[in-house]
Amino acid sequence: MAVDVKRSVRAGPRQAHSGRLQRRTTSTAYGFLLPNLLGFLIFTFFPVLAALLISFSHWDLLRPPEWAGLANYRRLVDDATFHRVLRNTFVYVLGTVPAQMVLALLVAMALNARIPGRLFFRAAYFMPVVASTVAVALVWRWIFHADFGLLNSVLFMLGVDDPPSWLQSTRWALPAIIIMSIWQQIGFSMVLFLAGLQSVPAHLYEAAKIDGASSWHRFVHITIPMLSSTTFFVLVISIINSFQVFDQAFIMTEGGPANATNTLVFNIYRYAFQFFQMGYAAAMAWVLFAIIFVVTVVQFRYQRQWVHYD
């Protein structure tokens, strides 16, 4: 009892003091968050809500919107181009994300070792990330040239008599864009993996070595689990970015030939800003949002089974 009183007497003023401090700290924190939050509300949250409303209307920007109910969504069901575009986008995501992540991890491990010139190589692998996609796409257009391109010249030297005509072929244009995107995105994932690798404590490897674990076992039982939180982050970000692919289709192929490289965002852009069909474009944008949302939720749901935080 006495102890309690003593404690409360001592705690009283301190608690009041720390409460005030905490309030001040909290309001300072909110103060710092405010500009970003306002930006998010004004430029992201409300437009996204507005887009949802627009998706239930016919709107050409110039005349007032007309309520359309579910007409835009119903139109999506029968739109063969939209189905093609959905398929292309999924193929693109499946084609780029896993390959890009595996290659990025391999590069990160190579550049984590003490090899000569590793700073140069790190910069070189990161360069495509900061280079403008427009410039990159122009160079790759040349690499993919059917007759005189670098890629087909190499293939020809290797004995391939009839190499694909890449961007000119409905079958090879999308793979060509996937190849370019993998090359372009490796750098970003690599930097994250490098950071992850460097935070793996060296004593784990030493202990494993003493126990006689082979380098493969060290990779599977130490590196992979210790990197799992990095891997999870890279996976989520890469998938979201890949679903939003636009520049490549816009610059390299304009979605052609015959819609072979048309993607969701490129199609949304065309309907919104070339055909002035804001309602239909907004409906497609919401489908894209729903896909990304579901995929991301599923990833967070299942992360517990393979991601370790410590």
Partner: peptide, 20 residues
Amino acid sequence: WREIESTIVVPHLDLIYTGE
């Protein structure tokens, strides 16, 4: 016309010009 040309006409012409 713009929508018809870009979503229907051009993709089909592509299929002809690529020989498919």
